[in-house]
């Protein structure tokens, strides 16, 4: 297949389920479980889940695209990080490999990368990554007008009425996160990990990297979780020690001498109950976070959302029990989508 032959895939059905594929095995699992679309990235800094043991070689991408296409599913390639000056070629090469592999769209954030793909691969479909932090109709239109972006992945900071309003003012599709890790900072504008570890979320695709994580149990049974030597949280002997993500840690402030969740509690986003409202607001595609998750996680989440979307399409109510069960026993949130008070 030559470089200019990105087939104009049909993305027209609303309620599209966009599912994470951290590995080829997870991709097959997601497709088999009913994903309309899967998203994935290469094993390097060109995508925002550049974690050890995750992601695809060019060969794996090619065979995975074939697997998905044979089953009617689409593949999105995440090229959603920001190349630092001098390293742009890695992102350009990744786009060329994606074209040759037959991916159905690219997910981009950097204007230089978007422009390169728009000019070099004019048939390519571009989705604007949440990492671009386009949270107004004007910002979204900027990317649509200049790079032909066909879909925006909205930041997780908008209420449903705000999403409806945005939809009425933009010429492209909307994709929103509905399940998984609940990022607190504006994506693409966070250097917290780089401040503590020397690896950048924007430039290296890394967030709170596992290699810098340590847990230390004290004599009294309490546990400290650290990132690059900084204590992100400490846990009583009967508490579950969470992963030390900087924006989910507990800190003290002058007037808050007991540790408190200064940014957010370790909590998952679950918009299962809101799917009909989101569709009514004009959301075209639902994104499930979790390229770092296991195959069994991907299977159960994708199946539950598949059933929910199918029943909505059939004019019925989604089976909420399934979706609620996914986060049973864990803290879950509807985040900003439900109310402005979240802010």
């Amino acid at each position: 297949m030559t470089d200019t032959e990105m087939t104009d895939t049909d993305f027209s059905t609303a309620g599209e389920l966009v599912c994470p594929a951290g590995t080829p095995a997870a991709l097959r699992t997601a497709v088999d479980a009913g994903a309309d679309t899967v998203y994935c990235g290469f094993r390097d800094a060109t995508n925002a889940r550049n974690f050890p043991g995750l992601n695809f070689t060019p060969e794996e991408l090619q065979s995975s695209v074939a697997y998905a296409h044979a089953r009617g599913a689409r593949v999105l390639l995440a090229l959603n990080t920001y190349p630092p000056a001098g390293k742009v070629a890695l992102w350009r090469d990744a786009a060329a490999i994606g074209m040759r592999s037959g991916v159905d769209a690219f997910i981009v954030a950097d204007m230089g990368v978007a422009r390169h793909i728009a000019e070099t691969h004019p048939g390519a479909r571009l989705h604007l990554s949440v990492q671009a932090a386009a949270s107004s109709p004007e910002a979204i239109r900027y990317y649509c007008q200049n790079f032909g972006v066909r879909r925006v992945v909205l930041p997780r900071i908008l209420t449903i009425p705000e999403i409806r309003k945005i939809k009425s003012e933009i010429p492209c599709e909307i994709e929103t996160f509905v399940f998984g890790n609940h990022g607190l900072m504006v994506e693409g504008r966070c250097s917290l990990t780089n401040w503590l570890t020397g690896l950048s979320t924007n430039m290296d695709g890394v967030c709170s990297p596992a290699a810098d994580v340590t847990y230390e149990r004290a004599a009294d049974g309490s546990m400290r979780s650290r990132l690059a030597g900084f204590t992100i949280d400490s846990f009583a002997p009967d508490e579950n020690a969470g992963y030390p993500t900087i924006c989910k840690g507990r800190y003290t402030a002058p007037h808050r001498t007991e540790g408190f969740y200064a940014f957010e509690e370790p909590i998952s986003l679950n918009l299962g109950r809101m799917l009909p409202d989101l569709m009514a607001a004009g959301v075209h595609a639902f994104k499930i976070e979790g390229r770092q998750r296991s195959k069994s996680y991907v299977r159960s989440v994708v199946r539950a959302f598949r059933r929910a979307v199918d029943s909505i399409r059939a004019g019925g109510e989604p089976d909420l029990a399934d979706l609620v069960a996914l986060t049973e026993g864990q803290k879950e949130t509807q985040g900003a989508f439900q109310t402005k008070k979240w802010r």
Binding site: M185, R189, S191, A253, F263, E264, A336, K340, R343
Partner: peptide, 19 residues
């Protein structure tokens, strides 16, 4: 400058919301 958010952490630390 390390991050921005839609949420106001100053307000949150004082038990308030941004509005």
């Amino acid at each position: 400058p390390l991050a921005v958010s839609a949420r106001c952490y100053h307000a949150r630390a004082h038990g308030r919301t941004k509005d």
